[in-house]
């Protein structure tokens, strides 16, 4: 039980206290310990990547042989892509094979999938972006202004107001104001709330109160 529960908690508490202390006490002794821990962290993270890779390989292998018939093909694609990229990588990150995979397969596929978002946003804007309440209407009007203010169209529509006493009607100015005042106030509140939550969780982990990261019961 000690090795499974208390020992990992002691390691966690030790590492956390050293890292916090090193931030506030920049002295050689503690800084060296921090540097060593940072190197260890990078080594551990590297092994988690290998673990993830093996996990993907085994799960795909299992599904390719015993999974749903219609999905088996995609699992073989995953396995061959994974192994193909690894083999190409062994010839060097600048090898023609790796360059070909990265520039002609991975990059266009990745960019294409993300680009599909624009189509879904447009469809969702038509179906879901409705002024059903006062709050939704305020959100709608704000989105309107920001969307117009972020493209040259906003400048063309309201350009007449720039430099006049009605300059506050110039859409890029309104957009900047919304982003730098209204948005920022909200974001700051979210950030501070999250930071306080993070500190509380950190203290709970250091003291061994929060143990869910250890898994098990």
């Amino acid at each position: 039980m000690f090795w499974k529960r208390q020992f990992p908690i002691l390691i966690t508490a030790f590492v956390a206290v050293v890292m916090i202390a090193a931030y506030f006490i920049p002295k050689p002794g503690i800084a060296d310990t921090r540097d060593n821990l940072q190197v260890w962290f990078q080594i551990v993270v590297m092994f988690t990547m290998i673990l993830g890779l093996l996990n993907l390989l085994f799960v795909s292998w299992h599904k390719a042989r015993k999974g749903r018939k219609e999905d088996r093909f995609y699992n073989w694609v995953t396995i061959f892509s994974l192994l193909g990229t690894i083999v190409a990588g062994f010839f060097g990150i600048n090898s023609p094979a790796f360059d070909f995979i990265f520039n002609n397969i991975y990059t266009p596929l990745s960019a294409t999938i993300f680009s599909l978002l624009a189509f879904y946003v447009a469809s969702a804007s038509f179906r879901a972006f409705r002024a059903k309440s006062i709050m939704a209407t305020i959100l709608l009007i704000t989105a309107f202004i920001v969307m117009l203010g972020r493209v040259p169209l906003g400048d063309w529509i309201s350009g007449w107001a720039q430099g006049t006493s009605l300059g506050f009607l110039y859409l890029p100015n309104i957009t900047n104001w919304i982003m730098e005042v209204m948005n920022m106030a909200g974001q700051r509140a979210v950030l501070m709330g999250a930071a306080l939550g993070l500190i509380a969780t950190g203290i709970k982990i250091i003291l061994g109160i929060e143990r869910s990261y250890l898994g098990g019961e």
Partner: peptide, 12 residues
Amino acid sequence: HLMIILFIIIGN
């Protein structure tokens, strides 16, 4: 952006 704005107007 213009198209999305038009979609929102038409939808509403």
